[in-house]
Amino acid sequence: MEGFTIEAIFYFITLCVFLGVEIISNVPSILHTPLMSGANAIHGVILVGAIIVMQRIPSDDYINLSIGFLAVLFGTLNISGGFFVTGRILAMFSKKKKA
């Protein structure tokens, strides 16, 4: 993405908005809860940003290192919690289908 112009980013975002709406537009209501939880996990990709910022902090700047540590922890919680919860919810459904 380095070197991309702000216009390119803008076009990319616009396409992503339509794609985001389109891919879930046919979701049946029974899947709203797991979908919300799964989407919740996906925005945990902010962890990538936390890692990038974290490695730039000078290794003796302990205050910012602890803030960065928290940021990475929060991001990871968002991801792991999100996917595990979604998995658990979906497991409830599939258990039934086999029976």
Partner: peptide, 18 residues
């Protein structure tokens, strides 16, 4: 960072629709 933009916008758009 392209993956953050993509992931964020997907969730943002899907979340509004939901």
């Amino acid at each position: 960072n392209i993956i953050m933009i993509a992931g964020g916008i997907f969730v943002g758009a899907a979340g509004v629709l939901l």
